[in-house]
Design a protein around this nucleic acid. Structure first.
Lengths: 326, 326
DNA sequence: ATCGGTATCGATAACGTTTTCGAGTCACTC
DNA sequence: GAGTGACTCGAAAACGTTATCGATACCGAT
């Protein structure tokens, strides 16, 4: 900036005023300075700017890692931010495996006082919101709490999945649930039980087990379920990862999907369409969730009065991993 | 930070030393300060930190938008950054459509003096590298120039695609090329011509036309090609978007793919597996490109001597959009 | 000739850090 | 008991920007 000032023959203060379009600079000076800025390719330093003015027109989206789930959200957010006058900054603390819990608090502390005007946090655990700074949570571990939240209807989606299996004639339906500390996992299990109850089908507790939402842990659970003497004819997995893992295990045990076993997942990650057979699953509108979260954040900053909890509908996506019983 | 200093009964200078593990602080003091830091949940402000020290342990990845191409790169980069001691910050200028060219220069200027220690830039056009600051380009418009670069073997991939169509017996093969200002598009066309020449098949210039890599423009080109009296029996599209667009146009003209027309794409974006029929295409290892770019950047910063141009192999992915001629 | 008002600009403090360097304390040595 | 060195700590400057406020110049009016 001082380069620009020197070249244009003015002070840095004047350059700053020109950059920010403040009143009190002669028209001729404005043009001259802008010319020099253009020539030198000057661009304000984000760091210094925010340090002083606490306003950057940059919104943050904080994720533990850039995996399929969060990158889909990112796409949606990116589409929404275009033309809003904001820029988007995605930040990952990069501690592999999200090993260090509390990443969301630390990242937020690092970026909030400075750098960004507001943030979308993906699947946060604990969240104490510093006041005067706006935060939107997407799919938080604990379900909608005090924070403005965007999530999808996990309960209804689980009912959808279970009813689909029931409609195919399955009665002996197993469930591989997610991590018990996650609200979404609890809701999916609850939806499963509700649908079973409504259909007057008793749930056999021996075929409802924790799979933990991860490939390896789900594989263990699937193997246990499938080696029972009266194994389930269909399995509702808590997420697509678990479902895919279940199909692998089934194959390795000599079972073919969907002939010997129907499997349905949850999430509709891109991979679910690529596996063999393509996975029937419940879609969460991830991109739309990202877009809604960003819109909500922008509105909050602008002071718009609105509903601060958005729940988006889930949908059944029928592919080829389920088949009528018998 | 001054809060921490006051609570711990020391000066901010001492706190800074503790945070950065500098020598010259008594063991007892270190422990007391760390205790207070933990209690107050203090985290250094990225902005102020970089402003002063020009070292943040944060690497940037600059993209025009978060679309499938760049988010795949991002996944790869994210995996690579884990455990490296760096954090990852993805930045998008957010001018929809990349309308404003020069976004890469402006974003870089905004973040480089401060905030990030180095950057990966995705599909940049012009790039003047400020010295003392490390930049890696992924798939640059102009091909490998002075900058350290990661790209995939577009030429060999195009040869692969063309040879596949030839091996199916097609002779009348059309090509919908990309934007002429992109090196990758030029290389793909060149590969196409090379393969045709090697097979002693003449290229009919009327069925080689610019499609521009975008859905709408490619649709126009496809429509023109397919309404020729002697339309091609197979089309090699410059990228998957163009290929998908071509299939749509073919369908709307009453042609079925692959029976009446074979189509092959390039990129292997996730969407290509989801369309009907699933698209046969050439895979670029996007995630691996992201990972390689990040590794290269880290090495450059560390001063490791190494090759600064990485070209990754492409691969044929056979799905269902091509069929033998006759 | 003086004054008030307006338009324009620049000096300067502040934002939250890091780094340098000098000052203070203490134990030891001669 | 004074000098020496090692160890610990804090004052202050600097990074690049923005906001405040006072300085200057010029104009027209009294």
């Amino acid at each position: 900036m001082s380069d620009v000032a020197r070249t244009a023959g003015v002070s840095v203060a004047t350059v700053s005023k020109v950059v920010n379009g403040r009143y009190g600079v002669a028209q001729a000076t404005v043009e001259r300075v802008q010319q020099v800025i253009h020539e030198l390719g000057y661009e304000a330093s984000l760091g210094a700017q925010s340090l002083r003015s606490h306003r950057t027109n940059v919104l943050g989206i904080l994720v533990a890692e850039f995996e399929p789930f969060s990158t889909e959200l990112l796409k949606g957010a990116s589409r929404e931010v275009a033309g809003s006058g904001y820029q988007l900054l995605a930040y990952s603390s990069g501690d592999g495996e999200g090993a260090a819990i509390g990443w969301e608090r630390r990242s937020l502390a690092r970026l909030s006082g400075t750098l960004i005007d507001g943030a979308v946090i993906v699947t946060p655990t604990v969240i104490e919101t510093k006041q005067g700074f706006h935060v939107v949570a997407v799919d938080p571990h604990t379900g909608p709490s005090g924070l403005p939240t965007v999530d999808s209807d996990n309960f209804a989606g689980a009912v959808l999945a279970t009813n689909y299996l029931l409609s195919l004639g399955h009665r002996r339906i197993g469930h591989i649930s997610g991590r018990p500390d996650l609200e979404s996992a609890r809701l999916r299990e609850a939806g499963f039980r509700k649908a079973m109850a409504d259909a007057d089908v008793a749930v056999d507790e021996r075929i409802v087990r924790v799979g933990g939402f991860r490939t390896e842990s789900a594989a263990g659970t699937a193997a246990a379920l499938l080696s029972l003497p009266d194994r389930p004819t269909a399995i509702f997995a808590g997420n697509d990862l678990s479902a895919i893992s279940t199909m692998d295990v089934a194959r390795s045990m000599g079972l073919t999907v969907p002939d010997d076993l129907s499997v349905i997942g949850f999430d509709n990650v891109p991979e679910s369409a690529l596996v063999n057979p393509p996975l029937t699953t419940i879609m969460q509108p991830l991109q739309r969730m990202g877009a809604e979260a960003l819109r909500l954040l922008i509105d909050l900053i602008a002071g718009v009065e609105r509903d601060t909890h958005i729940r988006l509908p889930t949908e059944l996506v029928v592919r080829a991993s389920c088949r009528p019983y018998r």
